[in-house]
Amino acid sequence: MGILRFVAARAALGVLTLIAVSILLYLGTQLLPGDVASALLGQSATPEALAVLRAKLGLNEPAYLRYLHWLWGVVHGNLGNSLTTGTPIASALMPRLGNTLFLAGYAAIIAVPLAVGLGILSAIREGSLMDRLASILSLATISFPEFFVSYILIVVFASELGWLPSLATVYGGMDFWDRVDATTLPAITLTLVVVAHMLRMTRTSTLAVMSAPYVETAFLKGLSRSRVVLSHALPNALGPIINVVAINLAYLVVGVVVVEVVFVYPGVGQLMVDAVTKRDLPVVQACGLVFAIVFIGLNTIADICAALANPRLRSRKRQ
């Protein structure tokens, strides 16, 4: 299979999965006892009022038509209105999406090089003091819930040392560096949580490659350790490592939910949790869809990158 065909096929699969998830997200809301109209008008609503609202909201149409209407709206940037505030969801969601991506991006910029670097290093120096230390520390941080890490950081850096703010307050038009300052603690929390997973998985992938016969061959050719690692082990570990990074970036997006709540950070995660508490289904739906797009998008891109790193797909068959 040529590389272009693979990319096209994988991208198509990503879109297909996204559609399947969106159907699931949409059908999920149909499980609600009663419907949106009765939820909007409450218990005391008259049947006439309900009927009028149902017609207005298009609730009398069959489910698949309503889904297609919804999807059509989503594609055109219309996510519907919030049940609680009545305002368009898109206008509330978009700035928050920006905030969430800023925080996740901030954490990723620290976490990815750190974790991949340390992971490769512990694999190469397997069994060394550094490897064992990294292994114990990563086990600890994997076991810590996000909020535990958050509170420890707040106690140390905000309450005791007073270096950084304990609440990540951001607002529109905020200066970039002020924003960085405000989001440093949540970003470090996310980094700690995600680095451990990424480090462990990178180490495992690299170790698997380091025990391959061709790495032994390279050593027996008299190549230096760094040469063996850089030109024989890493190119082959690249595919697995890209996947590791993608899985963990996706995990980071989820970790954002809890961290946003702890630091009262105005992102999509906090919005979603709020909406769940208030049972504001259209908002929950919209947030879920946004997370799905990010999550599935990342995985698709990772698969494509991993494939690009594989010479079997890259080169044409010449035999």
């Binding site: 399947a20 289904l281 879920g288």
Partner: peptide, 17 residues
């Protein structure tokens, strides 16, 4: 399809409903 989404996000959906 279920794997294509983080558990927390699906979970929140279900709890909302």
């Amino acid at each position: 399809v279920l794997l294509a989404m983080p558990i927390l996000i699906f979970g929140l959906m279900v709890f909302a409903v």
